[in-house]
Design a protein around this nucleic acid. Structure first.
Lengths: 153, 153
DNA sequence: TCATATTGACATTATGCATGTCATTTTGAC
DNA sequence: GTCAAAATGACATGCATAATGTCAATATGA
């Protein structure tokens, strides 16, 4: 009985740490971008292209799960920066494929490796099992919350 | 060696689940507000007043860690709704104390209890230890990220 | 008393999206 | 090959959630 409330209480706390967690993570990423001429959203474009390879704006939008109109803007900015470039798309002549330039490729690899370095340093204070457990719990909770939101619709 | 990368990788995943987690949680809260004439930010005002008792706008702002000018707007809206009211502040005549009305008090208790119900249902799929571990890990990570951001400044 | 701080009110700006519309391709079914 | 439907880029608008700046009134405290 009391245990049930305890669990719910802790779960509640966990869920609402998501905001500070996100803010802290984002401002950390932002710090890592200092001196690169990149914005956070340009970094996001580079990251996806690095992770999943060259692709079009609509593909990127699907991957990022945000509207293509906004992704278009992000990509145009990134294009202007010279870290990505357009290549002819054999599958769709109006929608060029976006690809990292050498410069962009080097840059995003550098950034990601610095970020991973931070992850490694931080993970030293935690056990492998605890991290795995935390990830499992969070995935479970996100899933549960999404289902619940889905029901209502 | 490989284990180190594994940990970093999982930690990375965990951290970046914070955004979907937050979004899912917020849209769940929003669902719970349907039919109440409350907005999410009005709910936030009621929640703080319920949790920490009656207080002034600047106090609320400190608690929410957002600028008092914005909190002022939230509070004015909430005042207009009739769920909170102003009371004379003996400590500062220009800054009335905001307190829940009976209506507001009933409403926020109702909302919070529904939300806790959801927490309980969801926590059934998880063990007490796993939830505690997840919370511990997340707190540790937030702390670590904040320190890191703090250093740079 | 009087300099300083606090507060509410108001204005402006920024960020991160969602949504709508349009003209121009492009695609796919026939 | 034709043609309706879909995809795409470009542009406009709107909205929530703030941050920031300013001002006048008032309150505080030395």
């Amino acid at each position: 009985m009391h245990n049930v409330n305890m669990k719910a209480e802790q779960l509640h706390q966990l869920i609402w740490m998501s905001r500070p967690l996100m803010q802290a993570a984002e401002s950390c990423v932002e710090d890592g971008l200092a001196g690169t001429n990149l914005t956070v959203r340009m970094r996001a474009v580079l990251e996806i292209l690095h992770k999943y390879g060259e692709q079009t704006v609509p593909e990127l939008a699907a991957r990022l799960e945000i509207q293509r109109q906004y992704v278009q803007i992000m990509c145009n900015e990134t294009l202007a920066s010279g870290f990505i470039e357009q290549r002819a798309n054999p599958r769709h002549k109006r929608s060029p494929i976006l690809a990292l330039t050498n410069q962009g490729s080097t840059l995003i690899e550098d950034i990601l490796s610095n970020e991973m370095q931070i992850m490694q340093e931080m993970s030293e204070g935690l056990s492998t099992e605890d991290i795995a457990t935390a990830l499992k719990v969070v995935l479970f909770v996100v899933d549960g919350l999404k289902k619940r939101a889905g029901e209502r619709k």
